[in-house]
Design a protein around this nucleic acid. Structure first.
Lengths: 340, 340
DNA sequence: GACTGGCACTCGTTACAGTCGAGTGCCAGG
DNA sequence: CCTGGCACTCGACTGTAACGAGTGCCAGTC
C-alpha cells in the first residue's frame, strides 16, 4: 500500500506532463520524457498501483492516465517543489505597484495582474470592513429629513448609506451629531463598535436622541451586520483557454459560481492563518466548482490579514507556479497597504 | 428591388422562428407555422429574393434560411411590434425597487434584474460623474502630510482619493480648506468646476496657497479628467445558453470584451437622446463583438440622462422583448433616482 | 524478488461509403 | 402571379474497416 519513491516520481511525472500537454500520458511517453531509469513495462506496473490507490485514472481503456483530484492533492502536498518567480514576473509585480492612487485602483490593478500572471481567473477581496478601523464618519445633509452617512476606514475603504430621519433636523444638530459620533467611534475597530454605538444613543442629549437612535440603527446595519464585503474579478476569458477540455465542456456552472459574491468570499475569504490554501476539484464545497481548483491566501500589512485573494482555474493547472504567484502578489499588496 | 408586404412578412416569420427554435427555417415549416396564405414554393421565391438582397442566408445548400445582421436590422426597424411586458415582469421590476439602500445597491439590483429578465448579459453604468453635481467635499487627515479627499455627488456616488501634501498642514488649516472648497464647489456640476478650482487657488490666503494648489491638481485629475466611470455586469453565465451555437463556438472574444470597461462604456454609455439603441452584429465597432448584439438606453430622472444600461447577447435574440425590458428598467431606475 | 521484452487485447479515432431526407431552384401549367 | 411537381444538393447519420496508442499479463532474465 505504501508508495515507494519511484511510484511517487511516476505520479509527479504524470501530473507535470498532463498539465503541460493537456493529454493523457502513457507509459512510453513517460520514460522518454523523464529519466526514470526503468522500462515502460515497469512504469505500467507502477501506474496500475497508482490507479488502484485512486491517484490516477484512465479516461478510457486504450488511453493514457490522467491524475485524479486525489493525485493532484498528493502532488501539491508532497511532490511539488516551490517554483521561484521569473524576473519578468517579479518586475511585472513591482511595476504594477507604482502609480496606484486609490484603494479601488490598487484592487483593480492587483486582480488584473494576478489574472495576467497566472492566466487564470483572479479574485481579490477588498480589505474586510470587519478588520478595519473607523477613520472618520461624515454626515452630509441631503434634505432636512435625510442624511448621507459616509464612513472612511483606515484601509481606505469608503462606505456610504442614506439615512431617513424621523423628523427635520437643523444644520447645527447635524454638526453636533457628527462631533459626537466621531468622538466616540473614530479609531475604533469596526467589530468593537456595537456597544459604543449603543452608548452613543444613551449618552446623547435629549433633543438629539431620536435622531441618534435612527442613525445608530443604520450604523450598525451598514457597518457591522451587513458585512459589506466587496470583490473584484478578472480574467474570466482565461476560462476558455484549453478549449472545452477543461471544465468538461461547460463553462456554465463556473460562470454561475463566479457571479455569486457569497461563493467567491467563501473561496478566498476564509482567512485562516497566513498560509496558502489550495482547493482541488471536489474538495470544493460548491458543486458548480467541482471541476475547478482554487489557490488562495490572505493579504495585509505585516501579519494581520485584511482580506483574501486567489485564482481559480481547471484542476489541471500549474499549482507550483500559481501558488508562488499568489503568494508573491499577496505579499506585495500587503506592503503597499502598509504604506497608507 | 422593393420588398412587398409578403416578403416582409416572410422575413419577420423567419426571424421569429429562428429566434425561438434556433434552427434554420425552411419554406415548408414556415407556411405551417404562420398564416401566410401561400404555398411553400411561393415562399421559396420570396426567400430567394430576400437572400439576394442580403437579408437572409443559407448556412449550407440543403439547409433552411437564417437571418443576416442586415435582416435583423430590417426586422428591428420596421417589422417588430412593441412587446408589452408581462405582468410578472412588471411585478419583478417593482419588487426590486423596494429596499435598495444605496447607490451600489440600486446598481447591483438593477443589473441582476436586467440579466434575469432578459436572460442575457446585463451592463449598467453608474451615474456619470460628468453629469453629477458636487454635494459635499470632505477632507480627512490621514497624517500631517496626507489627506483623504472624499467627494459626494448628488447622484449618490462617492469618490475618494489620497492627497500627498507638499508639507505638514495643521488641523485648523484643513478645516479652512474644507470650508473654502465647499463654499466654492458645492452644488456645482462637475463639468463646470475647472475654472472654479482655478479660482480657489488664486483666492486662497497666502499660507494655504501651496496646499490648495496640490489639492486643486488632485481635484481636477480625479473629478474631471480621469472620468471615473464605473460599470456593473451580471449574467455572463447566460452566454452559455444555446450551447455553442451562438457566438460561433467561442466565448473567448466576448468575455475579453466584457472585461474592458472602455468597451462597455462605448457600448452602453453613448448617451444620445433618450432613445433605445440597438447594435446588431457587425454594426458593432469592436471585432470581438461582431457575433453579438447590444440593446441599450440611457436612464436618469425625468429627461436628463445620468448613465446608460443595456444587455448584450447573441444576434439571435428576442429584440422586441429585450428592447421593452431595457426601456422599462431604465424608466424605473430613473424614477428611483429621482427620489433621492 | 524486481525488472523487462513480448504479445494479445481493448477501444477510441479516423476514413470511407452509402443512405436518408430536408430543403432548394426551376419549370410548366393554371 | 401563384402552385404543384421534380430533379438536385449536401449535411447528418450509420455501418464497416483499418489503425494505433496504450494497456495487462506472462514468461524469462539478472
Amino acid at each position: 500500500m505504501g508508495l515507494d519513491d519511484r511510484k511517487l516520481a511516476v505520479l509527479r511525472a504524470i501530473v507535470e506532463d498532463y498539465v503541460s500537454t493537456q493529454e493523457p500520458v502513457g507509459s512510453k511517453a513517460l520514460v522518454e520524457r523523464h529519466q526514470l531509469g526503468v522500462s515502460p513495462a515497469t512504469v505500467r506496473n507502477d501506474m496500475a498501483v497508482l490507479e488502484e490507490e485512486g491517484y490516477i485514472r484512465q479516461p478510457h481503456t486504450s488511453a493514457g492516465r490522467v491524475p485524479t483530484d486525489r493525485g493532484y492533492r498528493l502532488f501539491v502536498d508532497r511532490l511539488s517543489r516551490v517554483k521561484p518567480l521569473s524576473p519578468a514576473e517579479r518586475r511585472a509585480i513591482e511595476r504594477f505597484l507604482v502609480g496606484a492612487v486609490d484603494l479601488d485602483d490598487v484592487v483593480h490593478r492587483t486582480v488584473r495582474l494576478l489574472a495576467q500572471l497566472t492566466r487564470q481567473v483572479a479574485v481579490v477581496q477588498y480589505p474586510s470592513l470587519a478588520r478595519s478601523s473607523v477613520r472618520h464618519l461624515e454626515l452630509v445633509p441631503i434634505s432636512t429629513t435625510r442624511l448621507m452617512l459616509v464612513m472612511i476606514a483606515d484601509t481606505g475603504r469608503v462606505e456610504q448609506r442614506l439615512v431617513e430621519l424621523p423628523g427635520p433636523v437643523p444644520a447645527d444638530d447635524v454638526m453636533d451629531l457628527r462631533r459626537l459620533v466621531n468622538e466616540k467611534l473614530a479609531g475604533e475597530r469596526l467589530s468593537d463598535t456595537p456597544p459604543l454605538v449603543q452608548a452613543l444613543v444613551e449618552e446623547a442629549p435629549a433633543g438629539l436622541r431620536p435622531t441618534m437612535a435612527t442613525l445608530a440603527t443604520v450604523l450598525l446595519e451598514t457597518l457591522v451586520e451587513r458585512h459589506e464585503e466587496r470583490i473584484a474579478l478578472a480574467g474570466t476569458a482565461n476560462l476558455t483557454r484549453g478549449g472545452l477540455l477543461d471544465f468538461q465542456g461547460s463553462l456554465r456552472p463556473i460562470l454561475e459560481a463566479l457571479e455569486e459574491e457569497v461563493v467567491l468570499l467563501k473561496l478566498i475569504g476564509e482567512t485562516e492563518p497566513s498560509t496558502t490554501r489550495v482547493l482541488i476539484g471536489d474538495e470544493n464545497e460548491f458543486d458548480n466548482l467541482r471541476a475547478a481548483s482554487v489557490v488562495s491566501t490572505g493579504y495585509g500589512p505585516g501579519t494581520t490579514i485584511l482580506g483574501g485573494l486567489g485564482v481559480l482555474g481547471p484542476t489541471r493547472m500549474d499549482y507550483p507556479g500559481n501558488i508562488a504567484t499568489v503568494r508573491a502578489v499577496a505579499r506585495y499588496v500587503g506592503e503597499l497597504l502598509a504604506q497608507n
